[in-house]
Nucleic acid binder design. Sequence first.
DNA 1: CTGGTTGCAAAGGCTTTGCAACAGG
DNA 2: CCTGTTGCAAAGCCTTTGCAACCAG
Lengths: 138, 138
Amino acid sequence: MQELIPFLKERGLRITPQRTLILQTILSLKGHPTVEEIHRQIPHISLATIYNNVKLFVSLRILKELPYGNGLSKYELTNQPNHYHILCEACGDIIDFNYPTLTQIEDVANKLTQFKINSHQMEVYGLCQSCQRKEGDD
Amino acid sequence: MQELIPFLKERGLRITPQRTLILQTILSLKGHPTVEEIHRQIPHISLATIYNNVKLFVSLRILKELPYGNGLSKYELTNQPNHYHILCEACGDIIDFNYPTLTQIEDVANKLTQFKINSHQMEVYGLCQSCQRKEGDD
DNA sequence: CTGGTTGCAAAGGCTTTGCAACAGG
DNA sequence: CCTGTTGCAAAGCCTTTGCAACCAG
């Protein structure tokens, strides 16, 4: 958090209470909140401001956008250890899990496609425990 | 294509010229078209019909939805060999590439999270060849 | 002070839906 | 025929934007 102040200032950006609160809220939610979930925690900050700042943070690579929200985007802080995601197809929940980084696949992809590789992502899809139980009830 | 007729009929769904054309168009486009790209090929079919049918085909698992279109969804036919995707961060293009299926990761994810696993996906991000050239020009 | 920021309301862009006319089987 | 389907226009939903008031530095 503190390390952001010089980072923003260098770029002529200001530390506003809104920006601080948005980041603190994402931190406190821990998971992968949507804009709507962030706004629910800090309803006195306008939705437009949250949208604009989340977008700004993504462009500054402070946040990462996860496009798996069924139309909505979810966000996570980038200053976290590498991990992959598992998504529940019933409730939409996203959980992190650790797995050795798939470094090889980037080399292969580069050889096969001649792309200049930047990163990769991997998601596993399934049913979380509580949705498995609910399914059993039907 | 032919194998779809009994598949739809079993479910009380009809084979309409629109449905046939939508699937043929996706086939002919080969890649991972958006709804808009499909509609551009068959503009005499209403956008609403294309949306409704694409959605129907996804629910029937004839099509798979790829949520990497920067807001738009892209679609691909499911009756294709397993493969992974590489995305160009500049132009948004999606290319398939082959890599041994990451079966192990599903077992690990199951052990770590207790999810019931259905599938997984993996995307590599980078710059395609033609966007690499363009970048060099700047 | 002064240019970046906020927040409201309006506009945008993609997608879904209500409904009357239509048509596959 | 009868129920599923089409297509228009309208509505929905999430997100972005114009702009005046505001405020961080």
